[in-house]
């Protein structure tokens, strides 16, 4: 089985003087795996996700994501890499507030290199929105008019439109109530069910681990 994320001797701090935030001797995620990574805030979760998605440059160690060695890529190459191969869902503020749900999805597509005609994008976006339970009357509304739950579901569509190989989901349910949280989890898992993508789900809430086949805690992998 191939690995999706491979880390060796990774050390990270925001500046040479400040204390180490991440010190990961070895960690990997298999391709197609659905992994739950649990940890309280301030444990280095977000820094790790910033590194994996290529937002932050790595200073020390080896970081391989989907076969690309991120620590050797330039900022521009990492942006390109992220646009094409990674999907990302935040805790909140996932959408450009003044664009409609559909336009948010269309926007995500212009950064990928895939030469898709707009009709194809349109069809894919529509079927994603339907399967995520967004009513058609909401598709053309500015996204700030949608409820937080709806926004989070549109965010999944936005993150998956370009068929990423790695989907990173960072605390997506923390602004949802209990009921919508369960609905959200079920929708998300159903979306990825039949796909070969790797899902990295990060949360402080360990009760969510029941949805996943494998779960790990940040302090198991991070020595810092």
């Amino acid at each position: 089985m191939k690995t999706s994320i491979l880390i060796q001797n990774l050390k990270f701090s925001y500046s040479p003087q400040s204390p180490l935030i991440l010190d990961i001797p070895s960690w990997h995620v298999e391709q197609g795996e659905r992994l739950f990574l649990q940890g309280p805030s301030g444990c280095g979760k977000s820094s790790l996700l910033n590194l994996i998605s290529g937002i932050l440059p790595l200073t020390q160690g080896y970081l391989g994501v989907l076969g690309a060695q991120l620590d050797t890529l330039s900022g521009r190459q990492r942006d390109h890499f992220r646009a094409q191969r990674i999907g990302y869902v935040f805790q909140r503020f996932n959408l450009i507030p003044y664009l409609s749900a559909l336009d948010n999805i269309r926007l995500a597509c212009i950064f990928t290199d895939q030469q898709q005609d707009s009709k194809q994008v349109e069809d894919k976006a529509c079927s994603l929105l339907i399967s995520l339970g967004i009513e058609q009357s909401h598709w053309h509304k500015a996204s700030h008019q949608l409820s937080v739950g709806q926004q989070q579901r549109v965010a999944i569509a936005r993150a998956m439109i370009h068929q990423p190989q790695l989907l990173i989901v960072d605390e997506p349910t923390s602004s949802l109530d209990h009921q919508s949280r369960d609905a959200f989890m079920q929708l998300l898992l159903r979306q990825v069910e039949s796909t070969p993508l790797t899902l990295l789900f990060v949360s402080h809430d360990h009760t969510l681990s029941s949805y996943f086949s494998r779960s790990q805690s940040m302090n198991e992998i991070n020595d810092a």
Binding site: H80, I96, L107
Partner: peptide, 16 residues
Amino acid sequence: QHEIAVMRVMGASPWF
């Protein structure tokens, strides 16, 4: 800043 973060995560370069 939120918008900018969203665009960045979609893969928008700072030039965009």
